Amino acid sequence: MEKTGVLSAKEAFEKLEKVGEGTYGKVYRAREKATGKIVALKKTHLHEDEEGVPPTTLREISILLLNVSQGLNKEGKTVLYLVFEYMDTDLKKYIRSFHFSVILTLWYRAPEVLLGATHYSMAVDMWSVACIFAELVTKQARFPGDSELQQLLHIFRLLGTPNEEMWPGVSKLMNWYEYPQWNPQNLSTAVPNLDELGLDLLSQMLKYEPSKRISAKKAMEHPYFGDLDKSLL
Rank of each mutant, 00 (worst) to 15 (best):
F100S: 13
E135Q: 12
Y108N: 01
K92T: 12
E11N: 08
C131L: 07
K10P: 00
V170T: 09
F225M: 10
V129I: 08
L201Q: 02
D88K: 10
K217L: 14
K10D: 03
G20A: 12
W176P: 00
K10H: 03
S101Q: 14
T118A: 13
A130R: 05
F156P: 02
E48W: 10
L232D: 08
L7H: 11
T23C: 03
H99S: 15
L64P: 01
L228K: 12
L66C: 06
V170F: 09
Q204D: 08
L233W: 07
A9V: 11
S97Y: 01
Q151Y: 05
T78N: 05
R109V: 04
K207N: 11
V124Q: 04
E221A: 15
E17V: 03
S231D: 15
S171P: 11
W127P: 03
E60T: 10
L197P: 07
L202M: 01
Q204M: 12
I103S: 09
G25V: 06
E32L: 06
D229W: 06
R109T: 12
W107E: 01
K37V: 07
S211N: 10
A134K: 11
L194M: 04
L115W: 02
K77C: 03
H119D: 07
E164W: 01
T138K: 08
F13T: 01
S121L: 00
D227F: 08
M205E: 05
T44L: 13
K218Y: 06
E85A: 10
F133N: 02
M122N: 11
Y179E: 11
